[in-house]
Amino acid sequence: MSRLVYVDGGYVQEDEARISVFDRGFLFADGVYEVTAVVGGRMVDFDSHLSRLARSLSALDIVSPLTDRELRVVHEKLIARNNLDEGIVYLQLTRGVADREFAYPYGLTPTIVAFTQAKPLLDNPLAESGVKVVMVPDIRWRRRDIKSISLLPQAMGKEFAKRHGAYEAWMVENDVVTEGTSSSAFIVDADGVLRTQPLGHQILPGVTRRAVLRLAEEHGVSFEERPFSLDELLSAREAFLTAASAFVLPVISIDGQNIGNGTPGPITRRFRELYLKECCQENF
C-alpha cells in the first residue's frame, strides 16, 4: 500500500501527488524544508523545527498559508494515517506557482507538500561502531542559515562520501570546518572542551545541535561555540555529528585518519544517551 502524502490542503496517495511544472521550487529551488524525527508515533523537537521554518520563510519573504497549529495537525495526520511509529516527516514549502521570472512574483499562494518515511532511528548500529567522514570544500552559497531546498552542493558532497566508503562529508572553508552535508559538526578538543561552529550565515542552526548545547550546559560540560580548523579536528579527543534523523553519532575517522583511538568516545556516548533519554521521555 502506498503512502498518503499531503499536497496543498489535501491528503492523496503518493502516486497521485502532483505539483505544477511552474512551481518556483522546481524552477528556482525557491523554497525551504524541515525534517522532523518521529519516535513512538510522536514528533521530536517539533517546536524548534517550527521556529526554524518561520525564520527561513522570513528570510525569503514567504508567508506560510498555514499556522503553526495547522502545520502540526498536518504532521500528526500523516503520522496517524501512515501508521508511522519511527522515522521522519518531510515538509517542503515553496513560494508557489508563477511564470518563470527571476524576481519574486508577489501574491502567490505557497505550495506545501509533506510525506513520511519509515526508518529505524533509536537502534542505530552506527552509534556503536561510529562513522567515517571525508572532507570536501564548502562550495555553498552565503546564506547557509536558511534551510533552503537548494541542496546540490550537499548532494555532491554526500555522493563523494559514499564513493569513498564514508557516511558523511564535512565541509571546509578557509581551513575551518563549517558543518556536514546534512549534519552539524562537533569535536571534543585537545583540552577536553566541546566545540562547534557559532551560529551565523555560514551554518544551518541545527535543531539537534541546539539541544546538545543545552544538554551540555545542564550537565556541566564545558563548551564553546568557536570554529575549529582541520588540524584541530584531526588532533581532537572525540568528534561527533548531530542531525534530526541521526540524533548523535560518533565520528571515528576523518579521511582515513583515526580520531582519538578510532572508537566512539565517552562524551559522545553520553550525549547520545542524554538526548535519547530526553527524546523518549517526551514521546512515551
Rank of each mutant, 00 (worst) to 15 (best):
G260S: 12
L122G: 01
A244I: 06
L230R: 08
D189N: 15
A246P: 00
V44T: 09
Q281T: 06
I252N: 05
S20L: 08
L122E: 02
E168W: 06
D189E: 11
S20G: 13
L274Y: 08
V136L: 01
P110L: 08
G262T: 10
D175F: 05
S183T: 14
R42H: 11
D189H: 06
P266K: 14
R142D: 03
R226V: 14
S2L: 13
E218C: 00
A161S: 06
F26G: 00
A155I: 15
F228Y: 10
P65G: 04
E159T: 09
Q202S: 11
G180E: 03
R18V: 15
C279E: 01
I187G: 01
I203K: 01
L126R: 14
R55H: 03
T67A: 08
K162G: 03
E225A: 15
I19G: 11
V74G: 03
E14D: 10
T94A: 10
Y6V: 04
D175W: 02
A216C: 01
I187F: 04
E128S: 11
L152Q: 06
Q202L: 15
R210L: 14
A54Q: 11
R142C: 11
Q281C: 07
Q154E: 04
Y104R: 10
L230N: 00
E34N: 10
G260R: 05
L84A: 09
S20D: 12
E70M: 04
L4T: 15
D15P: 03
I267P: 00
P105H: 05
D30L: 05
H75K: 03
P137F: 14
S245Y: 14
V21P: 03
E224F: 03
W170K: 00
R143N: 05
T242K: 02
A185T: 14
L53N: 04
V74I: 15
Q197T: 12
F284G: 10
G220F: 02
A211Q: 11
L249D: 02
A29F: 07
A118P: 08
D45I: 03
V44E: 06
D123G: 05
P264F: 12
L126Q: 14
F240I: 04
Y6E: 09
E217K: 04
I259M: 01
F228D: 00
L274A: 07
L50A: 07
E179G: 03
D8C: 04
S245D: 15
S20F: 12
R81G: 09
Q257K: 15
G9H: 09
H164Y: 15
V134T: 07
R55L: 09
A244M: 04
